Structure formats: structure tokens, C-alpha cells
Computed example of a mutant assay.
Amino acid sequence: MATITEHDVSYGDDKKIHYLASGPAENGPLIICLHGWPATAITWKSQLDAFATLGFRCVAPDMPGYGQSTARHEVSDYSQQSLVTGMMALLSHTGRKSAVWVGHDWGAGVASSVATQHPEVVKALVTLCVPYRTIELGWKGFLPLVNREIYPAEEYEYGQWDYMKNYEENFEKAVAWFDSDIAGLLKAVMQPSKPAGSRISPFANIRKDGGFFGGAPKPPSADMIPQAPIIPADVFSRMVKEMEGTGFWGGSAYYMNHESNGVYNGRKEGKLSMPVMFIHATRDLVCDTKTSRLAEPMREHCSNLTEVTIDVGHWVQLEKPQEVNAALTRFILEELPGEWPGFWESGYTKRKTIL
């Protein structure tokens, strides 16, 4: 198991990003992993361990609003423009000029924004569940791609993204509901996925139901959920403690910047020439990339695209870490062989003898 160290980088007007790092600091090819909602850096522990063991330098920040990073109650702190500024400060702090960027959920949106705005710092882009050229463009990036056979517009105006509209209409109420039992909510959210029954996501009825979990007055308590979460106990315990420290305000404010995000990323054509990999999760009913058109803009904007499908729910790198790590390893070997640790100095020689 790799040694994980902790670091801080200051940037902007008294803001800070806290990050975890593993692997050789001087010559390990750099991978940066960005988490989404809700999580903290420690949820990338499987990747921090695996890729450090292979000789990479693997870095995972507490994204702004989470963990030990700055978590101010300022909506603009969580716009894509502000988040990209933070990621560029993080990259600079590593002493590197570029990296392989990996993102899940909102972390995928931020990694995609980095690729859009600063392609020169992205050796390769890897996104899980959320394709490039969607969520980072605001409502216009994903709402038109809803599968209207599953979500007729007259009944589901916002499709499976209804919960995002709920944030805009009931932000403080939603945050207060999350904060009323953080441990219980996180345990409920991070349960093993099951094959989809109905293709209708429960997130499509949030406003109709009056909130999450069918409008329940608060999340279920942890002791009401007999099954363990999908992540190791020590990782889950640290994440809960960190989420209880910040609450959900900052993490939820990512959903409050759709208009400014559309303007910021909409100014760029967004065509990518570097290698891109996207990991589909077949059981993800919100980020539904298998029966909707959500992946189409990515396919139109990426000239070197690899797609991988894993039969799992939204928390793909947590529930199936071996499969995700294997896909990322193969992708780097095939698309970025020069980034493999020791590629240029190990004297690796292959000989064939005819017998």
C-alpha cells in the first residue's frame, strides 16, 4: 500500500486547496483525480494506491467546498471559471506543466473545463459517468439531450435533471436537508448498485415529491441501513468526518452556476486532439449515457476517443475500482506509452529467439 502525503496550496483571495498525493514526486508521471458530489479526496484511495505502486505520481484534491479545502458560502467560488483557477494552482504546486486528468461526476465537469480552457496542460482526459462537453456548459449542455421517450417533456420538463432545478428553486432547504444527517445520507447514497428496473430515475421527481427520498423529512439514519457502504470503512469514516466539517453548502453550490458556466465554456469551440477516455456506467439512471444522446457532443468534439462500459451504478470508481484502474492502465499504455513510468530510462529490452 502506497504512502499518502497531504499538502496545501494557497491561491486567489485567501483560498486553499488541500490534496493527497502518492508515488514518486520527482519523476512519476502525473495523474490528477477530481471527485464529484458528494465526496472528498480520500475516495480516490484505490487509485492513489494502485498508480503509486506502478510508479505514477497520483494526486487527488479535496475539491473547493469539501474536506480541508476552502468552503466559503460564496456561489461564485463554485463556478467552472473559479474551479479551473484552483486546478491550475494545484497543477503548478505539483511542479509539473501537464497531467493526465481524471474526473467523476462534477469532477468530470471540472476536468472537462480544464481541457476546454487549457488543453496544453492535459496530456489526456478521462471522465467517468459525465461526458465531455455536457455539464460544464450549463443547462444547454445536457438538457437538450434528455431521452424524451423515457421522459416526455409535458410530464418531465427537466427529465432526470429535475433535482438540479430543485437546487435553483430550493437551495437552502435542500442543503439543510442534507446537513440534517450527513452520515446517514452518505451511507444511503453509497450502497451497491442494482440492475435498473424502471428506466425512470427517482431524481426526475424531486420537485414533485417535495425533496429527496420521496420528500422524507430527513435522510435515513446510518443505523437504519444494514448494508455497509461500497467503500472501505476507514475511507468512509474519514469522508463522513470531512463532510460533517464543511456541510453540503459548497458542494451543492456547483449546481448554482449553470448560466455563468455556459458563458465561460461556450466561448471555446472545445475540439480536443489529445487522447480522451470515457467510462460509461450502465446502471446510472441520472448520467444515462447508454439510452440517451448524452455522449454525442463528446463524440463530435474528440478526435481520439476511447469508450469503456462497466456494468455498475454511478459510483463506478468506488464500486468497481479494479475495473476502472485496469481501464485507465490500458488506456495510458496504448495512448500515452511515453508516460509509462521508466519508459525513457529503464533500459527495457525485448528479445525474441527463434527455436
Rank of each mutant, 00 (worst) to 15 (best):
D223V: 00
I354N: 03
M224R: 07
A295F: 08
P144F: 09
S346K: 14
R299C: 01
A327Y: 12
G251E: 05
D162K: 14
T3L: 15
P131T: 06
T289E: 01
L91N: 03
V175A: 12
E155T: 08
K15G: 01
Q322A: 14
S10A: 12
V324T: 13
A124I: 02
A281L: 01
S252I: 02
T94N: 04
D8W: 05
S22M: 07
L186C: 14
M243A: 08
D179L: 12
I200P: 02
G247F: 01
P131W: 10
E74Q: 03
Y66T: 12
I231C: 09
R96V: 00
K350N: 15
S237G: 05
T309G: 06
P337T: 05
K140C: 03
H7G: 09
Y254H: 14
L272D: 05
T349I: 13
V84H: 04
N257P: 09
L128K: 00
E120S: 14
K194Y: 07
L305W: 11
L48T: 05
V189E: 03
G109Y: 10
T309I: 15
M224A: 14
P341I: 13
E154H: 13
G313I: 13
T329L: 08
A295I: 15
W249P: 00
T53A: 11
D49S: 04
T3E: 14
E136A: 06
G347W: 05
S221F: 00
R267H: 05
T53D: 10
V312R: 03
D181H: 04
L318W: 10
P61K: 13
I4T: 07
C302T: 07
F278N: 13
V235S: 03
S273I: 06
Q317D: 10
S273V: 04
D234K: 09
V122W: 01
L185D: 02
P337L: 05
S303L: 09
S98W: 00
A99H: 11
S198C: 04
H18E: 00
S193V: 12
A39M: 15
Y158H: 15
E244W: 08
L143T: 10
A228M: 13
V84C: 07
I206V: 15
D77T: 04
Y132R: 04
Y163N: 02
F212W: 12
Y167H: 11
G210D: 06
V9H: 02
E149R: 15
L333M: 12
I150G: 09
